[in-house]
Amino acid sequence: MGVQSIFDAVISLDSDKVVELVKEEIGKGTDVSSILEQGLIAAMDEVGKRFSEGQFFVPEMLLAAQAMKAGIDVLRPYLIRSDSKSKKGTVVIGTVKGDLHDIGKNLVAMMLEGAGFEVHDLGVDVDTDTFVNAAKEKNADIVAMSALLTTTMPTMEEVIKAIKENQLKCKTMVGGAPVTQAFASRIGADGYSEDAPGAVEKARELLGL
């Protein structure tokens, strides 16, 4: 009931309401991981689903993510105290070298965060070494790359090669307007998705979640 109203408040894109309700539930002694899982994360899944179905649009995804984030901020001190079972995995994400487009990459980062992943966003124009070093340093489960230009797409292959050469265990995901499943398969990426909610599903699939 209480957790359901948090879910509803995220879907209604109401940050203030989410903060208020999360505080209320914590006060009542509700299990914080159920607030996170059945309240916030489940709501972001629903938002992603509605986006993929064409019922929700980009600005609504942004607002829902803000509402979710506001809720997480209230929850954070309690989450650290509770067990870390709610941790889904670590993702290092960035737009590849020579490419400055960040809108799609930001949406994917946001949705992954919304799904409970620990996300390290390296920004745009990220070179191969930076990807590899961040993957090592953060002990990443997934390295996700974005490219919006046909001229920068081939760089993804270099990053994937470097990850393999360094024998890192992480999976790789690629996306961006000109990127296709065929291209992703050809360069040896473990995952591809057409949109942000699909990227969340793919990440879960790759990590067996």
Binding site: F57, V58, P59, L62, I103, N106
Partner: peptide, 8 residues
Amino acid sequence: VQPVATNH
């Protein structure tokens, strides 16, 4: 041109 959906 940048998308108005991401920043009004």
